[in-house]
Design a protein around this nucleic acid. Structure first.
Ligand SMILES: [Mn+2]
Ligand SMILES: [Mn+2]
Ligand SMILES: [Zn+2]
Ligand SMILES: [Zn+2]
Lengths: 151, 151
DNA sequence: CTGTTGACTTAGACAGTGTCTAAGGTAGGG
DNA sequence: CCCTACCTTAGACACTGTCTAAGTCAACAG
């Protein structure tokens, strides 16, 4: 991710302050922020950045394959800068934590040709759900953690 | 699904006309309607049924495990009455068609304990994406099909 | 059969997420 | 240093889902 700006320059993107801060917020690998979270963090660095610009920039990063969209629930999409290493996600049903995981077998091999109904299958998204270690120990703390996260 | 009403009676549900038509709309297995689609079909049978009641009823059916929620994209959730036979989904990127598929191996076995980070994993959702046979043959027709579906 | 009552339904307001438009601003080439 | 095409902005709008207060009725008791 550290040379994302170089790659964007190579794509002849205009390097604006807004795009720089969005890239900077996404710079830590293994994050899965919502657009609003990214906007809040970007605004801490560049207060006048608008919601529309964050959505525009994220949409462009997704379109060129530098960022992945992750829809784990029916809530806001999450944006994943770890786009250059195929992986899947492990989600806690209680607190919503998301972790990257790397299954030992390609999830595509589980689907025989006979079960593809003529589809040309090119991608597969796997979401493993359960409880994280913190939430598994004491559901009261788990519930409040979720409440905190949603507040 | 045909004895869904019997199961609801056994759970001491009040059998209202509204709940009956929602159950009737979901009666055909292998459908994946949005709440709005279910409301439209239910209203064709019982014109005065409200959106709120459709959402309430679907939420209750999901809570008791008679219907599954499916979030394939960031759009509206889809409601799946095929809850008594574990399956996964195959989605066309172009027209949005959803098909039930039955992988030959349990998707959970692909995730070794070492990759679970202490999580207690209880469920897994797999979404296979690609192009359906119709859309693979001629992307113009495919694009218009998606436009139609969204209109 | 009839009356009672708590569960159910309703319209519409509201909230969260994402898209669009028109007007103004600016990065980068010349 | 100027231009101009591309970018950003505020805010309106659309879609999806939730909530509330008031009215209605399914089921049961008598
Ligand atoms: Mn990830
Ligand atoms: Mn299904
Ligand atoms: Zn947790
Ligand atoms: Zn298709």
């Amino acid at each position: 991710m550290s040379d994302l700006l170089a790659r964007l320059r190579a794509r002849r993107w205009r390097l604006t302050a807004q795009r720089r801060v969005v890239a900077q917020v996404l710079d830590g690998d293994h994050v899965h922020f919502t657009a609003e979270e990214i906007h809040a963090r970007a605004a801490a660095l560049l207060p006048e950045i608008s919601r529309a610009t964050v959505y525009n920039t994220l949409g462009e990063l997704v379109a060129i394959g530098e960022v992945l969209e992750v829809s784990t629930d029916g809530r806001a999409k999450r944006y994943d800068p770890n786009a250059h290493h195929a992986h899947q996600h492990l989600v806690c049903d209680s607190c919503g934590t998301i972790r990257d995981v790397h299954p030992s077998v390609d999830p595509l091999v589980g689907l025989p040709t006979a079960e593809r109904y003529g589809f040309t299958v090119s991608r597969v998204a796997v979401t493993y759900r359960g409880l994280c270690p913190d939430c598994a120990a004491g559901s009261a703390g788990a519930a409040s953690a979720l409440t905190d996260a949603e507040a």
